[in-house]
């Protein structure tokens, strides 16, 4: 199997399931079973109603860009610079931190519609990235 530069998340009880969903192609959002509040990043208890019971929904992958930064330095091996890091407001209401691909540095704008693309590393590790929404001009 090919080596990957990417720092892998530690897989614990609170987050391993989420990465398993990503491996299956899904951008998951944890949901409280008792009060239905969505939460991200995942946690073992609902901060609103204190329930330990949860499931998840699969996000549509559509959202808008709440903020971003373009990273130039320092340059870590394996990443392509300038590296566009984004904070997406998913249409389900939670936010998600990710990378914007298929977009030039000059074309990034606050509020721009984006859509999820499941990225796969050479070693098979998958993580959600985003690109400008293809239907945006339709």
């Amino acid at each position: 199997m090919a080596q990957s530069f990417r720092m892998k998340p530690p897989m614990g009880e609170d987050n391993g399931w989420w990465w398993q969903q990503a491996a299956e192609g899904n951008l998951a959002i944890q949901r409280c079973k008792a009060c239905s509040t969505l939460r991200h990043p995942p946690r073992p208890m609902c901060g609103d109603c204190q329930s330990l019971e949860w499931d998840h929904v699969v996000a549509s992958g559509r959202g808008t860009l709440d903020s971003f930064t373009v990273l130039h330095h320092p340059q870590f091996p394996g990443f392509d610079y300038p590296l566009i890091i984004i904070l997406v407001k998913l249409e389900e209401g939670t936010r998600f931190t990710s990378q914007l691909i298929n977009c030039s540095e000059d074309a990034v704008e606050f509020g721009m519609p984006v859509e999820m693309v499941m990225h796969e590393d050479p070693d098979g590790f998958r993580l959600p990235m985003f690109q400008p929404a293809q239907g945006a001009h339709a």
Partner: peptide, 25 residues
């Protein structure tokens, strides 16, 4: 470590990268 792992795989490895997101907004 689980907290940091929502950012590290994307190349957000430095304080500058974390702060820039808020500064830009």
């Amino acid at each position: 470590l689980v907290h940091w792992s929502w950012y590290m795989p994307y190349g957000m490895l430095t304080p500058g990268s974390w702060i820039a997101m808020i500064a830009n907004k």
